[in-house]
Amino acid sequence: MELAALRQQLAERPELVAAPESEAVATEAKEEAAEPPNLEKDIADLLAEFDDVPHKKTILLALGVFALGYLIGRSR
Rank of each mutant, 00 (worst) to 15 (best):
Lys56Thr: 05
Gln9Val: 10
Arg13Gly: 00
Ala48Gln: 11
Ala67Leu: 14
Glu49Leu: 12
Pro14Gly: 06
Glu12Asn: 13
Leu46Gln: 09
Ala62Cys: 03
Ala18Pro: 02
Ile43His: 00
Glu35Met: 05
Glu49Gln: 14
Thr27Pro: 00
Gln8Trp: 05
Leu46Ala: 11
Glu32Asn: 07
Lys57Ala: 09
Thr27Met: 04
Thr58Arg: 08
Ser75Asn: 15
Glu23Ile: 11
Glu40Tyr: 03
Leu6Glu: 15
Val25Asp: 08
Pro37Tyr: 01
Val17Asn: 00
Phe50Tyr: 11
Val65Leu: 03
Ala24Ser: 15
Ala44Leu: 09
Lys30Gln: 09
Leu6Cys: 11
Glu40His: 03
Thr58Cys: 04
Pro20Asp: 11
Glu35Trp: 02
Lys41Ile: 09
Val53Trp: 04
Val17Met: 07
Pro20Gly: 00
Leu6Trp: 10
Leu3Asn: 15
Ser22Tyr: 09
Ala62Pro: 02
Pro20Ser: 07
Asp51Leu: 08
Glu21Trp: 12
Ala5Tyr: 03
Pro54Met: 08
Thr58Gln: 11
Pro14Ala: 05
Leu6Tyr: 06
Arg76Ile: 15
Gln9Phe: 05
Lys30Tyr: 00
Ile59His: 03
Ala44Ser: 10
Thr27Ile: 09
Lys57Thr: 09
Ala11Phe: 04
Arg13Gln: 15
Leu61Met: 07
Pro54Tyr: 01
Glu35Ala: 05
Arg76Glu: 08
Gly73Leu: 14
Thr58His: 04
Leu6Asn: 12
Arg76Met: 09
Gln9Trp: 06
Glu32Cys: 06
Ser75Arg: 11
Lys56Tyr: 00
Ala67Ser: 14
Glu32Arg: 04
Arg74Cys: 02
Leu68Gly: 06
Ser22Thr: 15
Val17Glu: 10
Ala62Thr: 08
Ala33Ser: 06
Ala4Asp: 12
Leu68Cys: 06
Lys57Val: 05
Leu68Lys: 07
Phe50Gln: 10
Leu3Asp: 10
Ala67Gly: 06
Tyr70Met: 11
Arg74Ser: 05
